[in-house]
Design a binder for these strands. Structure first.
Length: 489
RNA sequence: GCCGCGUUCGUCUAGGGGUCUAGGACGCCGGCCUUUCACGCCGGUAACACGGGUUCAAAUCCCGUACGCGGUACCA
């Protein structure tokens, strides 16, 4: 606790920000904010072949959308610029050379084919390690003259000389002690033949340079960690605290890969959730709970509340399957927490885009009526389009059950009554309907269900009297006539 | 294959030797409210992977097995 917490989210710009990446970013952010530490964004763009131009903007957009503001990084500045690894090549090269001079790394000249052949021997040995490196073409097996010549004329990489017969152990904040035998480790490539570093080198150098105190990342990195520890050791640096998060799994169990998820109809990029109408607070809350809980029975936490409650020690070790149902529940919970005015404001652009004309006041009334019935804001224009235009279809089951031979004339008479004494409030509508049935000595069912059908085409929905007050006498009569025409009798 | 990590209701999980006839949430199924739907409330369904130990006592500790997942690249 001597050093202030400094954490980083270090995505590779190979595509749209992944939902799992967002959770990693979230946990890093939570720890930083909780401790008054620093949240850094670093772009790990060292693989030129997988670079996707839109990716970086999408990562930035997505983080901004959910409200994970970064303290250092692209767009935010900071003392360790640049925050793009592709722009820090000189630094990595310098450190690679330092390692070579110290005898912890070496040059290797093997062709991809030669390495492939090694792997395919099938004797269980890794391609390039303490047992095999002596037989390969590298500065360990070649004379210094040969090496110097090769350096001039051939492509080469720099590899870490993994020490032999060591146990490499580290304390993971989530999993406790994890240990590996160094002999099973590959002599990791540090510098690729294109001169750029691999993840392993760049990551270790940058984490050290940026004084990162906690490395919080996905469990898929756990097997790489001993390589990183070996690197820290070679440099003589102290490794940061490691914390490996459980994986987010697809509902069928496998990794939530793009292909796997698409098959299940599950979006994997944050942008898709945004476009589908999920609220940032719902997505964040849901994601936070994929692998973490505060130990109480509370499940609703907004971002600032997560900051308060979060702790690395309460993060679980088991992979968590993604559940669309649970996410939707969260979305509904947060949607219900909005006031009608707020909900109306959220719905406004969708309403306009659908080509409907409605005043702000009226839209707020619609929001009030639908608030507890929608999972997405877009449901207002989807499931409740009848608030904006008369229904074009009528629930067949409902019509069969509730629309009798005398319904048409009954509704017409009710409509007539409305025009004579227009209703303005739900209370007035209530009284009008009750007065109407009392006078005629008929049941409420004779009029309420058909009225609802005429107004909305549906059998369920918001309170009928509120709807009547909303539509007013003229529109109600119009819809009664339309329904009578279309349904008949 | 090898290395690593994991395994409590269908799913997310609480629980870390006795308080567990295992708690909560989502989903599902009933009921109440509402002459509707939803919300809300009440109730139900459903789990400690298996086998050995250790212990007076094990979901909880140890070992093994099985299964799942991850890694095994000049990708991150």
């Amino acid at each position: 606790m001597a050093h202030p917490v400094r954490v980083r989210f270090a995505p590779s710009p190979t595509g749209l920000l992944h939902i799992g990446g967002l959770r990693t970013a979230l946990y890093n952010y939570l720890l930083a904010r909780q401790t008054g530490g620093t949240f850094i964004l670093r772009v790990e763009d060292t693989d030129q072949t997988r670079y996707v131009t839109e990716a970086e903007a999408d990562i930035l957009d997505s983080l901004r959308w959910v409200g994970l503001d970064i303290d250092e990084g692209p767009g935010a500045g900071g003392p360790n610029q640049p925050y793009y690894q592709s722009q820090r090549s000189a630094l990595y090269r310098q450190y690679a050379e330092q390692l070579i001079e110290a005898g912890h790394a070496y040059y290797a000249f093997d062709t991809p084919d030669a390495l492939q052949a090694l792997r395919e021997r099938g004797d269980g040995n890794t391609a390039y390690n303490t047992a095999t490196r002596g037989a390969m073409r590298n500065s360990l097996s070649m004379s210094s003259e040969e090496t110097a010549t090769a350096l001039q004329s051939e492509p080469y990489v720099v590899r870490l000389k993994v020490p032999q017969g060591q146990t490499i152990a580290f304390e993971d904040a989530i999993r406790g002690t994890v240990s590996f035998q160094s002999d099973v480790l590959d002599d990791q490539v540090l510098l690729k033949s294109d001169g750029l570093p691999t993840y392993h080198l760049a990551n270790v150098v940058d984490d050290h340079h940026m004084s990162i105190t906690h490395v919080i990342r996905g469990e898929e990195w756990l097997p790489s960690t001993p390589k990183h520890i070996a690197l820290y050791n070679a440099f003589g640096w102290t490794p940061p605290q490691m914390a490996h998060l459980p994986l987010i799994l697809s509902p069928t169990g496998g990794k939530l890969s793009k292909r796997n998820a698409d098959k299940m109809g599950i979006p994997v990029s944050v942008r898709q959730y945004r476009e589908a109408g999920y609220l940032p607070e719902a997505l964040l809350n849901f994601l936070a709970f994929l692998g973490w809980n505060d130990g109480t029975e509370r499940e609703l936490f907004r971002l600032d509340e997560l900051v308060q409650a979060f702790s690395l020690s309460r993060v679980g070790t088991t992979g968590a399957q993604f559940s669309m149902d649970k996410l939707q529940w969260y979305n509904q919970q947060y949607l219900m927490a909005y006031t009608s005015a707020e909900l109306a404001a959220l719905a406004r652009p969708l309403v306009d885009a659908a080509g409907y004309t409605i005043t702000d006041d009226a839209l707020e009334q619609v929001a009030a009526m639908t608030r507890e019935r929608v999972v997405f804001v877009s449901d207002i224009v989807g499931n409740y389009a009848y608030f904006f235009e008369p229904p074009t279809a009528y629930n067949a089951k409902g019509v069969k059950k509730r629309w009798k031979a005398d319904t048409g004339s009954l509704l017409a008479a009710f409509g007539q009554q409305l025009l004579e004494a227009p209703l303005e409030t739900a209370k007035a509508a209530h009284d009008a309907v009750h007065g109407f049935v009392a006078e005629r000595e008929i049941g409420l069912g004779k009029i309420m269900a058909p009225l609802r059908l005429a107004l909305s085409g549906e059998m369920g929905g918001p309170d009928l009297f509120e709807m009547l007050a909303f539509f007013g006498a003229e529109e109600t009569v119009r819809r009664i006539n339309l329904a009578a025409e279309r349904i008949g009798s």
